[in-house]
Design a protein around this nucleic acid. Structure first.
Lengths: 240, 240
DNA sequence: GACTGATTGCGAACAGTGCTCTCGGATGTG
DNA sequence: CACATCCGAGAGCACTGTTCGCAATCAGTC
């Protein structure tokens, strides 16, 4: 943190170094407030107080409360994405790593319930416009589907015969294309669909636990989640 | 609405009839505000204005903004529950009815995104204490699992052999008991688990669509959801 | 029918919020 | 040094949830 080198042609300068530092303080204060009081309780004035500024001064750094929230959302997406990727890169079979990713996301959610809720709950439909957030949100599913891509490329995954239900429509197949493009893979439709299915299922389970929907039934949900994750993973590698 | 009969020993009386009416107005205004501006935008003062009272007067009917929200939550749970039950009572095979319930919930969510988000997103951990809400929230899953119970009782469902994953722990089995108690059924663990799995999966898919997580990939999600619902339902009646 | 007590709406008030604007002082650049 | 930019402070506006006291209105009793 001392004597930063001039990487970008012009050296930092005391001014913008200070600016970056204040910005970091604001983010830190915001992060804490978010974790403690939730998105609703995130008050720009409180953040300003914690940083030691007057409220209006914060607007020199952040355009609005919503923008601060957006920044925090991106940060959270990144954090959980990193956790998921680390789990995906761990050892063991693909099934084991899949379960590891699911568990990692779950653990992150339990440790940061407000952030998780902000990412995956309360959409305020049509609000979360900024594309930054949606690209930032791809890391977790990418880690999961990435496992499939990897296994398929290694020939360790047999393409399951299209099971029950209606046939894959043209539109759906085209949507699968976009997934394939993203990974630069030729994962067949069936496997893409299974991947999406797995991720949505995992998400549903984690959210149910975090949002208290298992109260009075499956609480604590540890055993249930472990079992379900395991089965979802196994279902991916089905040999039928 | 005229000359109400005295069902409870003492007749309504102009006063409490009026009170009920004002209360209904408050709920209506609240419902509309919630649907239009979301939970965050639900302002007690705005509700008061719409009803034609001053803000403090509303407190004669509702203890706080949170209580009004809670009442609206319960109402919404009831609404979506009724929709689900109607779909479950429709014609067709169990698989068809399962898909119908899933689609009905999805449609309701698309029609009432803010309410859906309030029910299934943003938990504010530890906040939604009132037990009224969690019992009110059982109707949809009850409709789904109810289909299983029904089919099982009719002998149209073979118990799948415990598939992959760890064995069902004692605790998990005990939790399944509570589900069985609720339905007064002897649905075996395996089927209870499949039911929970199906419901969480459906919930995950619907939420993903409503919360915009399919943006840039599976949008519109109609085909995906239909296919997935169909497969989930088929998976329930597996004969293995 | 007058009296009493609860019910109910109103208005003012307090503390808090997001956000805008203006105004100095500090900082960097020519 | 002079000029331009930045950046924090402060006041202010419109809004929120919530509390409190006051006055009117209604229900039931002597």
């Amino acid at each position: 943190m001392s004597e930063a080198e001039p990487t970008k042609g012009h050296r930092p300068g005391a001014r913008e170094r200070n600016r970056a530092e204040v910005m970091a303080q604001i983010m830190t204060a915001g992060r804490r407030a978010l974790a403690e009081h939730g998105a609703d309780g995130l008050s720009l004035r409180a953040v300003a107080r914690e940083v030691g500024m007057v409220s209006s001064a914060v607007y020199r750094y952040v355009a609005s409360r919503d923008e601060l929230l957006t920044l925090l959302i991106i940060e959270s997406y990144d954090a959980v994405g990193a956790v998921a990727e680390r789990a995906a890169a761990g050892g063991g079979s693909a099934v084991q790593r899949f379960v590891a990713v699911a568990m990692a996301v779950r653990d992150w959610g339990r440790a940061h319930p407000h952030e998780y809720a902000l990412l995956h709950g309360s959409p305020v439909p049509g609000y979360r416009a900024p594309d930054d957030t949606i690209t930032a949100g791809t890391r977790v599913p990418a880690a999961l589907i990435g496992l499939l891509v990897e296994e398929y490329a290694a020939g360790r995954l047999s393409v399951p015969v299209a099971s029950e239900g209606p046939p894959v429509s043209e539109e759906l197949s085209r949507q699968c294309d976009s997934v394939r493009d993203f990974f630069g893979s030729d994962l067949p439709d069936e496997l893409v669909l299974r991947g999406v299915s797995a991720w949505t299922h995992v998400y549903g389970l984690i959210s149910f636990e975090l949002f208290g929907q298992f109260r009075n039934s499956f609480e604590p949900a540890d055993d249930l989640l472990e079992l379900q994750f395991e089965r979802i993973a196994a279902h991916l590698g089905v040999q039928s």
